[in-house]
């Protein structure tokens, strides 16, 4: 059992396997943004409070700024970059956010969409309360949340119809 300060690890992000050298003090967020160039996930507070850095690890929404990257080996990570299809078509959640004007400055949007994805994978017919609960860990400076709730509800409807 070694005490390591850095290590080459394989991490699986959006279905792609990356071999990357990770320091023990790297968070998943810094690895995603600075080493893999996946800058869709945002650095907000760095403190686990704003939710801008939300990604899914094994399907669960987490703050990537609080996760040690070395602990992510062998786990499945999904980020905002993995949502749209390869031909550029937006994911139904992304489309619903556009259609419902749930985006203003857009900084919080990747995090909120990932929280939404986590919710809708478990619950395809959420109540307004459940939607507000699911995005409770994401702070939005602009929208006042009303259109975000509408967008999540619309996305759920689209996904149910599929």
């Amino acid at each position: 059992m070694e005490a390591v300060s850095s290590k080459i690890v394989n991490i699986l992000v959006n279905g792609n396997n990356y071999e990357v050298t990770v320091a023990s003090n790297d968070t998943l967020l810094t690895v995603l943004r600075d080493k893999l160039g996946l800058t869709g996930t945002k650095f907000g507070c760095g403190n686990g409070e704003c939710g801008a850095c939300t990604v899914l690890i094994d399907g669960e929404a987490v703050n990537s700024c609080l996760v040690l990257a070395l602990n992510c080996e062998g786990k499945e990570i999904q980020t905002i970059e993995g949502l749209a299809s390869s031909n550029g078509d937006l994911h139904p959640i992304q489309q619903a956010f556009v259609d419902n004007f749930a985006i203003q400055c857009g900084f919080c949007t990747p995090g909120i969409i990932m929280s939404t994805k986590s919710l809708l994978e478990k619950n395809q017919n959420p109540t307004e309360y459940e939607i507000r609960e699911a995005v409770n860990g994401n702070i939005c400076r602009c929208t006042g949340y009303e259109n975000i709730v509408k967008a999540v509800s619309a996305a759920a409807e689209t996904l149910r119809g599929k």
């Binding site: 059992m1 390591v4 300060s5 320091a23 023990s24 968070t27 907000g44 507070c45």
Partner: peptide
């Protein structure tokens, strides 16, 4: 309340 500092280097042990 915004953290720009990185974590000081340490060694990680993963039993």
């Amino acid at each position: 309340h915004v953290i720009t500092k990185t974590i000081k280097e340490f060694k990680l042990i993963s039993p």
